[in-house]
Write a protein that binds this DNA or RNA. Sequence first.
DNA 1: ACGCGATATGTTATGTTATAACATTACGAG
DNA 2: CTCGTAATGTTATAACATAACATATCGCGT
Lengths: 155, 155
Amino acid sequence: MNAVDKIIDKAEQICLNRGTRLTAKRKQVLAGLIESNKALSAYELIDFCESHYGDTFSAMSVYRILEFLEEEGLAHRLNIANKYVACAHINCGHTHETPQFLICRECSKVREIRITPDAISNLKDNASDAGFMLVTPQFEMSCICKDCAPQQPNL
Amino acid sequence: MNAVDKIIDKAEQICLNRGTRLTAKRKQVLAGLIESNKALSAYELIDFCESHYGDTFSAMSVYRILEFLEEEGLAHRLNIANKYVACAHINCGHTHETPQFLICRECSKVREIRITPDAISNLKDNASDAGFMLVTPQFEMSCICKDCAPQQPNL
DNA sequence: ACGCGATATGTTATGTTATAACATTACGAG
DNA sequence: CTCGTAATGTTATAACATAACATATCGCGT
Ligand SMILES: [Zn+2]
Ligand SMILES: [Zn+2]
Ligand SMILES: [Zn+2]
Ligand SMILES: [Zn+2]
């Protein structure tokens, strides 16, 4: 059983425990997100599934499935990029805290890291001082990854 | 001369100094952003200008003008909201550092605050440890503003 | 095994955000 | 005044996302 299958398997257990179902279609979409190894737009994901699994999805289906996966904590929507990414922590035991996403603006590779509680409370305090209550469930930042850095002019 | 006109006037000087032109159309769009007092999508901005100034823009024009305003530092694109907002610091002397935007997810009101150099270098270090170089010119966070908080269930 | 309600998927249409490509107009330096 | 550049107009289309309703599938109680 390869690494991806293991993650899918874990995802299925998570759904079972929550009383939801990781159907074949949903597995396929989640597998696409995991195997692509980067963030994909819904339409890129459709193409990926078509070319890698020969399975074809309508945009509607993919959006619905992505919504499901996000509710289950198995995928995340990256708002600054209009793309979707598999959760990097499906397989590791720890609870899923407020994530921070480092997104390569060149190749859409993503690192999902944990932000320190300090940093969060700092941000909350700053917002609060300005009369705003922080409700964002995640932080997203545009970056250049190591692989893409060499190709960048003027860095 | 009212407050908005003063800002527009300052914006015009800024453009002059940079060798660019704040044309009548561009002034209109910038005025719309300022007077609306919140973030607007390009299409909302078109409606605003139509209803408040009787001036009609094509989507194409507005996108071009928004691009111009952003290049001149007079407006900002809010990626997490797909909306645009006038810079809150056109009129105050200080240089424009990395901004942090607190965006009300209910009413699109925006506070543009400065993020402390500490906090930035902290974020940069964290990213760097993960093999990513932070290049984001701004930080955006989804919030609830004071006015909208009372209407929120379960807060 | 059967019937039924709930969940999931299929299908078509449409809304929303954004850019491409090319034509025309306005502006300003020489 | 004239010519090149910058700005705007116009039309078409790409890319992202949701609405509304039809059909199929699943799982439970009988
Ligand atoms: Zn995650
Ligand atoms: Zn990269
Ligand atoms: Zn600003
Ligand atoms: Zn609000």
